[in-house]
Structure formats: C-alpha cells, structure tokens
Design a protein around this nucleic acid. Structure first.
Lengths: 219, 219
DNA sequence: TATTAAGTTGCAGCGAGTGCAAGTTCGCTT
DNA sequence: AAGCGAACTTGCACTCGCTGCAACTTAATA
C-alpha cells in the first residue's frame, strides 16, 4: 500500500479498497475451505483466521456462513435485468428468458469457474441449498417485475410470472436430471425443456375439470 | 430407537401411544407458539416446556425447530402418490397433476386449517421457508419418479420431470400473485397457469437460437 | 419377578450469531 | 501538521441451536 502521493482524484479511497479486499478474502477463504473440507465442516473461525480478521468482523460482512460461501454476486441479477432491458422489443418473452439462462449456463458448463464449484457445493449441503433457493427467489421477483413491464402486462398478470418461474424450473429440472443421469449436456436438456414450455407441455390436458369462476381466458 | 415416521404398521402398545402423543404435543405446541409469538421468537425450550418434556427429548423427536413447526405430514406425499397411482390410465399427465394440486388447494383455501396457518408462517420466516422448500424438493423427486413410470418414460426423461416441476411452479406463482395482489381466487390463478402450461407459454418462441446438439426432438 | 430394550433426562460442550463498548484507522477540514 | 468525527475492527459476554454421553426410568417379555 504505497500509493498515496498520487494526486489522482481516486474514486475509491483506501478505506473502500480495503473493505473490498477483506470481503473478497473472506469469500475466497470460505469457498476454498468449503471445497477442501466439505461445506458443513468449516467453521467461521477458520474462515476468519484464513482471511486474517476476527470472527466478529466476519459477521460485519456476511449475515451468516452460507452467504459467504455462496458469495452471491449482485452483478448477476444486474446483468440479467440488463439483458432483459436491451433485448429487441419484438423478441418473444420465453426467447428472452432463454438468452438470460444462456449466460448463466455458459458459466455453469465450465468446471473450474467459481460458480460451478459453488453449485457442486450446494448439492452437498441442504443448508446451502435452501439458502441458495432463497436468494434465487428474490431475483425471480425482480426479474418477473421487469418482464411484466416489458410485456406491457399488469404486475399481477399470470403469464409473465409463469414464464419467469417456468424458465427457472427448466434449469432446475435439467440440473437435477444431469446429476442423477449424466450423459446429456446441460444445454441440450434445457433446450428440450424450453421447447416443451413453448409448445405446451400437455396438449391432452383436460379443460373440463377446471373451476371456471372468475378467470380471464387467454388467447 | 429414535422415532422416525417410516412404515410402522401400528403396533399398539402403551409405549407407542405415548410416543405419538408426545410427538403430537410437541408439534402442536410448536405451531401454536410460532403463531402467537412469531416463528423466530420461539425457543426450543419454550416448546419443550409447553409439551412438558425436556429440551433433550425434543431433539429426540425432531432434527430441528423448523421441522417441528412445519410438522410435515408424511401422509401428504402418500396421498399424492396414491392419487397418481389410481388415476385413470388414459388421463393426461398434467390433468393428473391438476388433481393432486386440487387436493392441496382445497386445504389451502380454508383458513383455519393447520396447513394454511403454516403457510402463513412460512412466509414470515426465511428460515422456515428454506426448510419448506427443502422438504418440498424431496416430495418432488418422489412424484417425478412415479410420474415417469406412469407415463412409461425413462427416469431420465425431461417431460415427466418438467410436468411435475412446472405444476409446482404454477402453484408457487399463483400463491405469490395472490399475496402481492389479492382479488382473484387461488384456484382461478392456478387454473390459468395450468392452461398456459398445457397450451404453451409462448408460441412465438424462437427455435433458431437453440443449440441443436444431442437432443432428441419431441413430436 | 427378573431381564432387557426403549425412552428420557441432565450435563458438558461446540458453533452460530448479536449487542455493546472500547480501540484503531481513515478522510477531511482548518 | 494537527485534530476531529465517522467508519471499521475487535474482544467480551451472552443466547440459542444442537449433539454425544452416561445415567436413570419405564414399558414389554420371558
């Protein structure tokens, strides 16, 4: 840390920088240790130790251990929202979702990428998994809102919410299938799922059983 | 050994009965206290106290607090599987799922029902929610397996998994919508979602963007 | 009744997470 | 350069969730 005589109008002060470093060090240590020893055999003390800060400081940065290991990057959501915003106006909603999913997928298919390693971890620890789902739910709400607006529908409309939710389900199902029965690539599984969603998952669905109360028909 | 709700064909003794009673008392106390004081302000000590057993005994019955509050009833899954098994052979898969969903829904639309009260709780506590999701995931796996068999598809097939997953998503989305923008009945929301799923959520989906690698086309 | 298996309980102990009250570092002003 | 206030770190004490262990009590059985 010797750059202090520079007259550069530093947008980031020393304080800001140190915070970033500490946070990064903690997240990195958390991920590394979780991979080494298994996610449930890591204590916060070890993580803090590795990052050379006190345990108390750890909790100043993260609300709980899982959050540090998952190291959720707020940029991911931001990127998705940007993709949504910049998509051609005439692009169909599910197609746009597929674009968003592709971005995540490309990172996911590269083992070694931090995200892939995290996913592998998530599968090992129920605790991590639930935390993961929870964070994902927040994102889903945000994306749904944006999608509804883009589609010119009310926030309370079913279709935007269903499209976003179903896209997530497609990915989840694909991951689950690949985990239990490897052999097909993740993207091919996702593709197939998206096709089903687009065309209809069950043309033989029996409409006579529905409660025809106050619903508005579609198409 | 420890109590575990596996298939115990009701050996009626005084011992068995007491165990059932204790378990029920604990679950009831947990639910009641969670409703009264908020799910995150209840301690295991209070619950055990109310059920008149030691804290240690509490943990002989439940792996953690959340489990006791959610009081997951193994019968729910059993009932779903039975419905699936006893459905007419020629009934379309999504229709069958709709049947299963209906059962849950009817219980859900009755406030006062223990399940409704629990759902309300789940919405309040992230902790509970994650646990809830986790338990739901197990059920989904079981139902998917049964569905795949019923449809005569391989366990690794996409469609059965997607149908089950999407049905769950439909319910989830409907619940979320009703929570944020009340006005329509839950069942009408679910109906609309199911229709979308059946017919296709997005006819304008752009197929040219798909990776056409090793996937098997459908229809 | 005596034996044994099942269930309960207290205790000791670990780890997560929080509030509080120092102490330290940084940024900014004069 | 000095000093002030805000931001950050840290130790401490404490609560709560949860587990293993070793007694102890109670129900089922011979």
């Amino acid at each position: 840390m010797q750059t202090e005589d520079t007259a550069t109008p530093a947008p980031t002060g020393r304080r800001e920088r140190k915070k970033r470093e500490t946070r990064a060090a903690l997240a990195a240590a958390a991920l590394r240790l979780a991979l080494e020893k298994g996610p449930d055999n890591v204590t916060v003390e070890e993580i803090s130790e590795a990052a050379d800060v006190s345990v108390r400081t750890f909790f100043n940065y993260f609300p709980h251990k899982e959050y540090a290991i998952l190291g959720r990057d707020p940029e991911d959501l931001e990127r998705a929202l940007t993709t949504l915003r910049e998509a051609p106006v005439d692009q169909s909603p599910l197609t746009t979702m597929r674009m968003i999913v592709s971005e995540v997928l490309s990172e996911l298919e590269n083992e070694e990428a931090p995200m892939s390693r995290r996913i592998a971890l998530v599968m090992q620890s129920p605790n991590l998994l639930s935390q993961f789902v929870l964070l994902g739910a927040e994102d889903e709400r945000a994306i749904t809102a944006a999608m509804a607006e883009r589609m010119g529908e009310a926030p309370s409309a079913v279709r935007p919410a269903l499209i976003v939710g179903a896209a997530g389900t497609a990915v989840r199902v694909a991951m689950e299938l690949q985990r239990t029965a490897p052999g097909r690539s993740l993207s091919s599984l996702v593709d197939e799922a998206f096709l089903f969603l687009a065309d209809g998952i069950d043309p033989a669905f029996d409409r006579t059983t529905l409660f025809r109360s106050d619903q508005e028909g579609h198409s």
